[in-house]
Structure formats: structure tokens, C-alpha cells
Design a protein around this nucleic acid. Sequence first.
DNA 1: CGTTGACTTGAAGGTATTCAAGCTTTGTGG
DNA 2: CCACAAAGCTTGAATACCTTCAAGTCAACG
Lengths: 210, 210
Amino acid sequence: MQTYAAPRIALSPSSTQSSLLEAFDAPPLQPVSFFPAGSEIYAQGEKAGAFYQVEFGAVRVYRLLADGRRQISAFHLAGETFGFEADTTHHINATGVRVFRFATGADISRQLLPLALKGLTRAQEHLLVLGRQNAIERVAAFLVDMAERQGGLRQVELPMSRMDIGDYLGLTIETVSRVFTRLKDKGVIRLPSLRSIEIVKHDTLHNMSE
Amino acid sequence: MQTYAAPRIALSPSSTQSSLLEAFDAPPLQPVSFFPAGSEIYAQGEKAGAFYQVEFGAVRVYRLLADGRRQISAFHLAGETFGFEADTTHHINATGVRVFRFATGADISRQLLPLALKGLTRAQEHLLVLGRQNAIERVAAFLVDMAERQGGLRQVELPMSRMDIGDYLGLTIETVSRVFTRLKDKGVIRLPSLRSIEIVKHDTLHNMSE
DNA sequence: CGTTGACTTGAAGGTATTCAAGCTTTGTGG
DNA sequence: CCACAAAGCTTGAATACCTTCAAGTCAACG
């Protein structure tokens, strides 16, 4: 199985972080362990019953077909919290994740349910993108989502490669690259560097993602 | 918004039903109400905190784009149980659903969590299909899934239209139809009627879905 | 400064969509 | 029960979009 070692890019905490954490009603947490870049979290023996906070970079949750085709079902960005997803056919690949455990096993489900529901809602929106939107719409939706999760600023950091983006959007890296170029030529975005984009025409981008 | 009134097709209870229900450890349930064909469940004022059992036919969970494009994120078949998914941008369309409510609001999350996790796992598998598999593979995966959920028999009933299948698999109805024809011509399946298929070469179908 | 990996760009090809027509099934009224 | 209408499904031809294959550029790193 291929392992992707993503570069460590420090991100500012996203806006969704605090609200998600607040939703937990201050559970008793203990930091337990830290996973360096490229870690296969569950491959290292971790099971459900823990949940995680991303310290920097990003976490990819993905599935593979027998021939190696990969679909990333979710990214978790720096500052965000996620949990469960325990499943042997299911992989999580991290760059800098700190693990918290629940002090008691009693009300784990009360803690995990909002995360599960959030994940389910996102997955349903993602299905709409993959099933019914074309390449430009997919990339636009991705950028809008990334921007929102980073506080809605003009400047958006992409803590993942073009290949990751392609595997998230169900596109090839070439198509992702071409769409970036098209958006740049239209003046919708700027590309100061490979891993950062600047959203110039926010409304246009938003309309593109429908 | 378009409403699809699916025909009422009685299905034998699927194999996954009992295991899901058993997982609930016999919660105190009360049947509350019944939704006829074409009901928009949440459009009728139902909120989360209840869960549902499909009596016959099927339930579609879907999202719409502004221009009407639709993506069905899940089918729930006769005998199966589902819950939550409360969300205004999110629609559920039913043909014959009985609603159960939890007697107490206390341990709702303990009851809902396994359902949420099941839904999340299925959504992730669905994302892999939509993002990385071609038309034949998608239809094959769909048929294999339907067969398994109906007890693994050769004969599979499809309690939904070609349009529903297309909107579930991210394909047009024409493509769905063409793939059915191709599978029939290859001798992999038979089509005794529009809404029922017979799986002749089970292994071939399974390999196609990867 | 050269090498490596990641990304971009171009051209050709393939797969699914679109548009259109014909067919089949289902439902309805005579 | 039959005839017709309407809806759903199938089939065909042309088109569009994305992929594949290939070459070239850029950036990071030793």
C-alpha cells in the first residue's frame, strides 16, 4: 500500500474548530499520543473510542480499490476534531495528529454522535459534488469549502498535493491543474504559490459551486 | 421541487434488518405515524430524535442542486432502519415508512450512533464508487449491494426507477439502461421484468464491482 | 548546480452525455 | 376488457468532457 508523506505545513486554526470543540461540552480529555507525517493511524493499532485533533497539516481519510485507485472521502484540517471511522478497509493518513481519549467509556456515544452526524452531512454534500458536478464545479466547491474552513479569508492554504485534491474530487491531477489554470486566467483566483491560492472573485467562485 | 411517487412494491425483509435492529438492544419503541408514497418526511415537520423503519418499497435520501440536478445519497429498503439526517437542505422521500420514537430522550445518542456510523461507512463506499469507478463498475456495485441487502438471493427486486438508480450512481438513465443491456447480453444478469433482475454470474458481477 | 519529484501543458482518444426517436409498460376511461 | 394516453425505458448518433499519454517546466534539496 502506498503511503503519502505530505509536507508539514502549519495552518492557522480554522473557524470550525472552536464550534466543534464547544459542542462537546468540555469533556474530560487527555492528550495521549502523537502521529508524525505519513502515519497510518489505524494501521498502528488504534481503534475507535478515541478521537483526534489535527495539530498541523491535514489528515486524509480514504479508501482504495484493488487496483490502487484511491478515493479520499474527507480531509481534516489543522485545528479540526474527528473521531471513530474505525474500519479495517478504511485508512487514515496523517501529518501531525494529537490523540485524545475519553476519560470514561460511558458517554462515548454522546461525544461521538455530533462528529458522526457532521461527517455524514459532509459526505452527502461530497456525494452530490462527485455524482452531479463537472470538473470546474468540483474544484470551485472544494476551494469554497477550504476557504470557509479557514475562516473565510481571501488567502487559502492547501495542505495537500494536486494528487490528493484529484483523489478527493474524483479527477486526475491533470484536470485539477487545468481547472486551476482556467480559474486563474478568468481572474477568479490567483496562485501565489503551489500550495496557496487567493480568491479574487469570491461570488463567481461561489456561484460556480452552485 | 419535483416529487417522485414510486410504486409500492412489497419486499421481503432483508438480511441486514434484523442485525441492525438487534444492535439496538431492544429499546422502548412506539410506532407513531405512517408516511404514504411520495412523502417528504422532514417537509412534513418531522425532526431528528425519531428513527424510522421502512415497511415496504424504499426510501431515498437525496440532495438537489439549484438547477434541479439530484444526487441520491442512500436508499433504505423494506425492513431496514434509519434515523437522524435532519437537515433542511436535505430531503427524504418515502413510500411506506413507519416512524418509531424513543421513549426517553436520554440515550438517544447511544441508539443513533450505530446508525450514523453505518451510514457514514456506506457513504464512504459510495464516494469510492462515484469518484473512481466507471459506469459498469457502478452498476455492478449497486446490484451486488442490492442483492446482499435482500439476502443474497439470485433474484433481486429493484424498488426504484431507472432515474433513481441513475441519480444514485451519478449516471444518466440512458447509461444505466445501456449497462443493464450490456450485462444482459454478456449473460451476467437476466431481466425478467423492469423492476426485477436475476443474477446469473454472481462471481463475474462481483469482480466487476472490484 | 544537478537531480528528483511535483506540477503544467498539449494532443489524441475514450467514455458518458445529450438529443432524438421508437418501444414497452402502466394506468385510465369508455 | 379493450383502447388510448402517459410515463418509463431502450436504442442510436453526434457531441462534449475528461482521461491518457507524453513532453516540458518549475521548485526543493542535497
